[in-house]
């Protein structure tokens, strides 16, 4: 299958610029980067994609088993890099995608120049002394919320939305035109996201890494940012002047500055 279709890959920016690969997290799709893409595009070759099961990815590529582990998503990232022949990639992962980037960079470190982990958390659920911020029951509550809200999703419209990427206007009749997800796929992604434990994977990251946190962030508590910084050898932690879990929307300029200055540094 064509990886570009599978992931609805879009490329923008300077053809000869260094590559910045932007990976969205759980809950949305590449639209989440819309406020930072134009500024990054002035300097970099910006590659955007949707994870399988999100946005306008190819629904035929969905495989509940493959995507029940973050490794499946990391495989996809590596396939994208190979297919587009991306080298010296600065991988920017938002939320759960930061751990997807960690896994991909562990597997093929030579692909990646740098990692930017935007509001990462290697483990959302509290365990022993570790404070991820959530209990298992909280995660079950989230799944209930997903069940009650089929955001922008209607089974009747699904074939139209998913099958006609060249005719996006067909989808615009729906209330929420961004971040559509098949509810069944969203459930799997939610479980994978919030029940994964990647704390042990952090030490194996060998590429230069920037950890970006926001305070307050209702999803990744500040000490989790420190935890990630402490575990990834040589990594740097910055706290953005932004609140919430989506700094690329709430503080796009500061987010661009953090990504760009790190990506451009030698």
């Amino acid at each position: 299958m064509d990886v570009r279709v599978r992931h609805n890959i879009t490329t923008t920016g300077r053809e000869d610029g260094p590559v910045v690969l932007l990976a969205h997290g759980f809950g949305c799709d590449q639209n989440l980067w819309r406020l930072v893409t134009p500024a990054l595009a002035e300097e970099f070759r910006v590659v955007l994609f949707d994870h399988v099961g999100s946005g306008r990815s190819d629904p035929a590529a969905w495989d509940a088993e493959r995507y029940s582990s973050l490794e499946g998503y990391a495989d996809d990232v590596l396939e994208i890099c190979r297919d587009l022949d991306l080298r010296d990639v600065t991988f920017v992962g938002h939320s759960v995608s930061s751990m997807i980037g960690v896994l991909a960079a562990r597997r093929e470190p030579e692909r990646f120049a740098k990692l930017v982990l935007l509001v990462p958390s290697p483990r959302y659920v509290d365990e022993g002394d570790y404070r991820g911020g959530f209990t298992r029951e909280d995660i079950e509550e989230l799944l209930e919320s997903l069940d009650s809200n089929y955001l922008g999703w209607s089974a009747a419209m699904a074939p139209v939305i998913m099958g006609n990427p060249e005719r996006p206007e067909l989808g615009e009749e729906l209330t929420n035109s961004f971040c559509r997800t098949d509810p069944d796929m969203a459930r799997v992604f939610a479980r994978t996201t919030f029940l994964s434990d990647n704390r042990e994977d952090l030490a194996g990251v060998s590429v230069p890494t920037l950890v970006v946190r926001c305070v307050p962030d209702a999803i990744a508590p500040p000490e989790v940012g420190e935890f990630v910084r402490d575990r990834i050898p040589g990594s740097v932690l910055v706290t953005l002047d932004a609140t919430g879990h989506c700094p690329q929307l709430s503080a796009p300029e500061a987010t661009v500055e953090a990504i760009a200055s790190f990506a451009r540094a030698r």
Partner: peptide, 18 residues
């Protein structure tokens, strides 16, 4: 708490974009 997770991952980003 589950509602808060949903709010942060879906509600707030969509509100900001739309």
């Amino acid at each position: 708490v589950g509602g808060r997770l949903y709010h942060e991952t879906h509600f707030a980003p969509l509100l900001r974009m739309q």
